[in-house]
């Protein structure tokens, strides 16, 4: 082990953890919807694409940054409410697979709509944060990744406060715990669901901007959902903390696996390694690290 390059190991590990934060950002959008309505929203990637494309298209047309951000957020809120009204409400009480298929269809509609409205060209997105490394004791760390991690931390803190200390947040938690009990005490489920979808739209906007700055704003942005799925399996579908921890674990493990095990499998293993890790974990703990255990009376 004396020949082992610990500096390089640290660099891979840190890079993986920071990549994991980016996965978590997408996963949080899933968690919000799943937590309150039990729907695995496959359209989260398409929402992310739509948000980023809208924002960058507005900026390119001369709209100031802050105004573009506000307009895009408003649009995402409207879209969230529209989805609840036109897709989810008519499907209330339908089996989960029906709702999942509805969001799958919705993702195609959103992807098509994004290209229809804003065109097919790719766009660069500059957030004013340079993606250059700085040297910490020989380990290169990306400034942009640090910024993304800070944004993710801020968002988790904000959502935690929101869920814990606001009336709307408490209503979310009530609905998440028991929809029928929430109805019985007078909570308006459709309004809560619409608010949740709007919040997921905000998360999609933030994730879309960060991922867009990293990849460029283009159709492939919608594929980042594939990075979020193993994170959800590992962390639990209904836990924001789980999304963060799951993202860190998946990010670090897939990068380390690619570097240290990749050669044994011919390389290019990180995309499926994350799923293998998630599947293995699923067998041990089906509800994920922080997900609620489902107990049903039969």
């Amino acid at each position: 082990m004396s020949d082992f390059d610990w500096l390089f190991f640290t660099e891979v590990l840190v890079g993986g953890l920071l990549s994991g934060v980016m996965y978590s950002l997408v996963a949080i959008g899933f968690v919000l919807i799943y937590k309150t309505s039990g729907v695995l929203n496959f359209a989260q990637g398409a929402l992310l694409l739509f948000a980023a494309l809208t924002f960058v298209s507005l900026v390119e047309r001369g709209v100031p940054f802050a105004l573009a951000l506000a307009v895009t957020f408003a649009l995402m809120v409207v879209i969230g409410i529209a989805i609840e009204r036109t897709v989810l409400r008519p499907l209330t009480n339908k089996p989960p697979i029906t709702l999942f298929m509805a969001t799958l269809g919705l993702s195609y509609v959103m992807e098509g709509a994004a290209q229809l409205v804003w065109g097919t060209q790719v766009h660069a997105l500059e957030l004013g944060i340079e993606d250059l490394p700085f040297d910490v004791g020989g380990v290169f760390i990306s400034q942009f990744d640090i910024f993304a991690a800070a944004v993710a931390a801020g968002m988790v803190a904000l959502l935690s406060v929101f869920f814990r200390y606001t009336r709307v947040g408490l209503a979310f938690r009530a609905v998440a715990d028991d929809q029928f009990a929430a109805l019985a005490v007078g909570l308006r489920l459709p309004w809560i669901w619409a608010t949740v979808w709007a919040t997921a739209g905000l998360v999609a906007l933030v994730a879309g901007l960060l991922w867009g700055a990293r990849l460029g704003v283009q159709f492939s942005l919608s594929l980042v959902v594939l990075k979020a799925l193993p994170v959800l399996v590992l962390g639990g579908f209904d836990s924001i903390l789980g999304a963060i921890v799951g993202g860190l674990l998946i990010g670090a493990s897939e990068k380390l696996a690619e570097v240290y095990l990749g050669d044994y499998f011919g390389g290019g293993i990180e995309s499926w390694f994350a799923y293998v890790a998630a599947l293995a974990f699923l067998l041990i703990r089906p509800s994920g690290l922080f997900g609620q255990k489902l107990v049903e009376r039969v």
Binding site: F8, S19, V224, G267, E270
Partner: peptide, 21 residues
Amino acid sequence: QQIEVPHPGNEQQSQWLTIRR
């Protein structure tokens, strides 16, 4: 040295760290 990037290629941190080394 030939290094594979899994499709679609939106994550390449480990490949480029390997290249740097």
